[in-house]
Design a protein around this nucleic acid. Structure first.
Lengths: 130, 130
DNA sequence: GTAAGCAGTTACCTTTTGGTAAGCGCCAAA
DNA sequence: TTTGGCGCTTACCAAAAGGTAACTGCTTAC
């Protein structure tokens, strides 16, 4: 009845709490419906507000504005104002934003693997019912 | 005025849509406040409901129950019922759940890097005000 | 002069997500 | 027999996230 003991529980726990916090931080910054879409859109190069809104299908100006503000605060996006007439405002990724690339890669690799797996499962269920 | 043209826009776009969907799928499954905490808790080994609730500080039974159901539906968790008396129910990760390890790793690495960076920025701001 | 684009803001509303507290049926120990 | 653990469910609420639509001031193009 006591195979429930584990070795190095303390190490595990400390490591694990740190990991949880770190993951929390990461998801805080790139979580939500739009953050990653905006980042990915800006990976193609700098863009103006309305241009960006047209690129990212379905986002409203309100949400885009607030997301851009947050991304700027978190150091992912730079807002450049060119004071010619007419005035031009451009958003671009910072160098720092490029550090999320590996995260994006792993996430999308796992995601597409998961997608394939879900399809398989659905197929199996369909066949077993037919 | 026209340095705004990009090469291989079509490739980029197709690749990018797929990536977005995949990332969406991934975040759907591991997103939210609790999913990853539960997964990480179960990485230590199988666990019973109340045990799990005690491990994961702050989660309510309602939320734990619904999260576990979702995780089961998505093939991450297996719910085992042992029909002795008294009846025992145990939750454990599936092999499939272990495939998210690399995601967790990258996410937590980036997250702790980000944490360090935030600290630095805050420190700089403090010093420049002093 | 009027329409249309730019870069947003504002007020309001709905949906999703998460939290609280209580309680249910079943069982076992004190 | 009451107390407590187990594995949840239920009803009710609150906060956060996201969506809609209208409108702002500015500028240029028709």
């Amino acid at each position: 009845m006591e195979d429930r003991k584990k070795k190095t529980v303390l190490e595990d726990d400390a490591e694990c709490k740190g990991q949880l916090n770190a993951i929390g931080d990461a998801l805080y910054v790139i979580g939500g419906k739009w953050k990653l879409r905006i980042i990915i859109a800006l990976m193609h190069g700098k863009s103006r507000f309305n241009e960006l809104q047209r690129t990212i299908a379905g986002i409203s100006s309100k949400v885009l504005a607030s997301e851009l503000k947050e991304l700027e605060l978190n150091g992912f996006v730079r807002r450049r104002v060119y004071t010619q007439t007419p005035i031009v405002i451009e958003y671009e990724l910072t160098d720092y934003a490029l550090t999320v690339r590996p995260v994006l890669t792993v996430l999308s690799e796992w995601g597409s693997m998961h997608r394939r797996k879900i399809r398989q499962v659905m197929k199996q269920e369909f066949e077993s019912k037919a």
